[in-house]
């Protein structure tokens, strides 16, 4: 019945959705933010440890949400560990474009870590499911809010 949904729910996503990595509130962190998707009830919190040099040394998340949002958050925590704030922002921009725009319309986000972009490619299926884009991007928006010292973000904000 759902064969063509495999583009959206790739095995990697199902795996991360069921067994999210870096899940739970860590003992120590120095930046955090909460993200809300009031349309579907998803709530997420991101906990970052950012070093003096601006490197994301550690990041975790917790909260509840659909397979897409949990997998996206889980993948993000794996990808961003060790990245600079600048790199994280560039990857956010890349990911956001990947989820929302056709390939031809995606912006130039500079030179990005290929490992990271390869991993993120599994999420590109959401582009065909406009109602699910916010599920995929919630964790990234929340991470971005935490990086910039904002306590909360919501999918109902204009910037989404």
């Amino acid at each position: 019945m759902f064969d063509d949904l495999r583009d959206l729910y790739q095995e990697v996503i199902l795996d991360h959705g069921k067994n999210p990595r870096n899940f739970g509130k860590p003992a120590a962190f120095n930046r955090t933010a909460r993200g809300d998707n009031p349309m579907c009830g998803d709530k997420i919190a991101i906990y970052l440890t950012v070093g003096d040099d601006g490197t994301i040394q550690d990041l975790h998340f917790d909260g509840r949400g659909c397979a897409i949002s949990q997998a996206s958050a889980s993948l993000m925590t794996e990808i961003l560990r060790g990245k600079s704030m600048k790199e994280a922002e560039a990857l956010f921009g890349y990911f956001h474009d990947m989820c929302t725009k056709d390939e031809d319309d995606q912006g130039d986000h500079g030179t990005l870590d290929e490992d990271a972009t390869d991993k993120l490619a599994v999420m590109s299926g959401v582009r065909e499911f406009p109602m699910r884009v916010k599920c995929a991007t919630l964790a990234w928006h929340t991470m971005n809010a935490a990086l910039h010292g904002e306590a909360t973000t919501s999918t109902e904000n204009a910037s989404f």
């Binding site: 759902f2 949400g65 659909c66 499911f129």
Partner: peptide, 9 residues
């Protein structure tokens, strides 16, 4: 299974 995933399926 999250309701949102149920809905999509």
């Amino acid at each position: 299974i999250h309701p949102h995933d149920i809905g999509t399926l």
